[in-house]
């Protein structure tokens, strides 16, 4: 049913954002359409293993502490560096800047 779901659909977000059974991280992933493969629904080996360990291991709140309580985005500078040192990506972004055509032409003439 949810096989080939597209991400970023406003109607999905309205449904997901107020669904308290999902953590914000899960909402984020589902809405982007990243969790659309069926194996996410079936318990993985790891989850089964975890269930077996249920009584021996206290559940940690590790995921809670992972989420840095900041306003700013958490950037991966290595990925960003690769993305924006690529001239094609820079050229694609030029349309978001004013004077693009002028600048771009002059760059080509050089």
């Amino acid at each position: 049913l949810y096989g080939a779901r597209q991400g970023y659909r406003p109607s999905d977000l309205a449904r997901l954002i107020y669904d308290d059974s999902l953590t914000p991280a899960e909402v984020n992933r589902k809405w982007k359409g990243e969790a659309s493969n069926p194996k996410d629904d079936a318990p993985t080996d790891e989850q089964l293993q975890e269930e077996e360990d249920f009584f021996s291991k206290p559940k940690t709140f590790a995921h809670e502490n992972e989420f840095a309580d900041t306003d700013g985005p958490i950037y991966n500078d290595v990925e960003l560096g690769q993305k924006w040192s690529n001239p094609d990506n820079l050229d694609a972004l030029r349309q978001r800047f004013t004077m693009t055509s002028l600048r771009h032409d002059s760059a080509e003439n050089d």
């Binding site: 500078d77 960003l80 560096g81 924006w84 040192s85 820079l90 978001r96 800047f97």
Partner: peptide, 8 residues
Amino acid sequence: YRLLESVS
């Protein structure tokens, strides 16, 4: 790079 990402 972060600024460009934010703009993009």
